[in-house]
């Protein structure tokens, strides 16, 4: 992390303009959603933990749910001058960190998160242009507001552009 990095915590979101970068650390079953408008150079990043807020009452933090966080992120980006029709999405995460041989034990929250994110994006008419999801490893996601490039860092495999 350097001074141009804005950290996005678990169940949180943020927007940035150049020269800043948004970074979220250690996505496991959680999903990171990066939205970008290449003309206004407004970047947004959300770190969601759960697919759907509708089954929960009394939730104080809507930003941890895919269905609630994405519209909030879009609104925040529009406030900063982004245009809804130009928004493109890249997503990462949704892993199943522990592999169990026994079927009853499989942790499937990651794949449910990914599915929900995709459906919420499509409901909002945002095209998904890149993804790095699933698997059994953690990911750190970095979004560069200047270029809209998204980088994924994984343990032991270094950093790559998504």
């Amino acid at each position: 992390m350097d001074e141009k990095d804005i950290k996005v915590g678990i169940g949180d979101l943020n927007v940035a303009l150049p020269p800043y970068r948004l970074i979220t650390l250690g996505l496991g079953s959680c999903v990171g959603i990066a939205l970008y408008d290449s003309i206004s150079k407004v970047a947004g990043l959300a770190h969601i933990m759960l697919p759907d807020s509708s089954c929960f009452k009394n939730q104080k933090n809507p930003m941890k749910f895919a269905d609630a966080a994405i519209p909030i992120l879009i609104d925040k980006m529009l406030e900063k001058g982004a245009s809804r029709v130009r928004l493109r999405a890249k997503i990462a995460g949704g892993a199943s960190m522990f592999s169990f041989t026994d079927k009853n034990s499989i942790l499937d929250i990651g794949s449910r998160n990914v599915k929900s994110v995709m459906s919420v994006l499509s409901k909002n008419n945002i095209s998904l242009i890149a993804e790095d999801t699933g698997g059994n490893f953690g990911r750190t996601m970095i979004v560069e507001a200047e270029t809209g490039k998204v980088y994924i860092r994984t343990a032991g495999k270094g950093i790559k552009e998504l």
């Binding site: 678990i10 169940g11 650390l25 250690g26 996505l27 496991g28 079953s29 959680c30 933990m49 759960l50 929960f56 939730q59 104080k60 933090n61 941890k64 892993a95 199943s96 960190m97 522990f98 592999s99 169990f100 041989t101 026994d102 009853n104 034990s105 942790l107 929250i109 990651g110 059994n136 490893f137 953690g138 990911r139 750190t140 343990a155």
Partner: peptide, 27 residues
Amino acid sequence: TSVPAISIDMLAAVLSSSFMDAQQYSD
């Protein structure tokens, strides 16, 4: 208990996934 499953990875990734799996969904 189930059989053990192992992961060698980032702390935040394993910790958050373990809590989510135990349905600890609140803040």
